[in-house]
Simulated scan of single mutants.
Amino acid sequence: MSHSDSTERFSNRVADYVRYRPDYPPALLDWLHQDIGVSPDTLVADIGAGTGISTRLFLAAGHPVIAVEPNAAMRAAAEQWLSPDYLRLKVVDGTAEATTLARDSVGLVAAAQAFHWFDTDAVRQEWARILHPGGLALVFWNSRLLDSSPFLIGYEQLLLEFGTDYTAVAERYQDDDTMRAWFGDGLRGMARLPNAQWLDLDGLRGRLLSSSYAPPAGHPRHAPMLDALQRLFDAHAVNGRVAFEYQTRAFIGTLD
């Protein structure tokens, strides 16, 4: 997949992304501050910030944040959503591999769900450039649990049947050994934290359509996919909602 493809593939999904993508658990910031020892006033470069879901997590905890995002529609959504409430936010047009930030300018580089789209060799060099000496890189993302409930087993089968390039995208996420190797001797910590969304049918539909591999309206698999999603929801909803469960995985270390 080319760099331009990975940058632009969410442009037509911004509204669903803002409304239906999951947050990250507050325990992630507790771990970062209390266990790792990062000060809440540390300047964060949030790389691949998208619509600002991860950015808001840091801002709400007191961090000043530079949100770096190459997709214009997502940058606009982040500014519209966050700028009125958070004065310590700057949003810039840049990529993970070419952030546009100055050398030795931030104390923490963070990347959330977008990390699996990056050129991990190039970003390691770029992030080391923009970090203060001894600064840390934090990589984290929500991993959907595939088989922890009959609903999630059925949802995985739905993606395999109807997704446009689901298998190729799913295989991009790094495993623990890959992340250990990426950080090398600089690895300072790893965490696995529970996370979940409780979704009604509209929320579940929006969550599905926020995914880049979900066929959009007009695609021959779009309507059959939504019909299958309705049946899946009807079979497993309790009090009008289903549990969309994740494990938030986090890795932190230096890049010296």
Rank of each mutant, 00 (worst) to 15 (best):
D165H: 15
G62M: 06
T100Y: 10
G37K: 02
N12D: 14
S2F: 13
G52E: 04
T95G: 04
G240Q: 00
A78M: 11
Q80W: 12
H132Q: 15
L187N: 08
W141K: 00
G218V: 07
Y173G: 15
T248I: 03
L82T: 05
G94Y: 01
R19V: 13
N12E: 14
D5V: 15
N195T: 06
F233Q: 00
P26A: 10
V65G: 09
F162D: 07
R9E: 11
H33R: 09
L255Y: 03
L209P: 11
A137Y: 02
V91I: 05
F244W: 13
G203V: 06
T178Y: 01
Y173D: 14
A60L: 02
R9T: 11
W182V: 12
L145H: 01
T248D: 02
F183D: 06
I66P: 12
V109W: 00
S83H: 08
F183M: 07
L187P: 09
V123F: 13
L201S: 07
A102F: 04
A27K: 08
R180V: 02
I153C: 14
P40W: 07
D121S: 13
A223G: 11
L131V: 07
Q230L: 14
W81L: 11
A181Q: 06
A137T: 08
Q125T: 13
A61P: 04
S6V: 15
G186I: 05
S105F: 09
Q230G: 13
E245Y: 03
A217W: 11
L255T: 05
A137S: 10
V91D: 00
D104F: 12
L208N: 09
L101H: 04
L29V: 04
G203P: 03
W182H: 07
D177N: 11
D176T: 10
T51F: 09
S39R: 01
G240N: 03
D5H: 15
R207D: 06
P26M: 10
A15H: 03
S6N: 15
M179Q: 08
T248P: 10
G107N: 06
V68E: 01
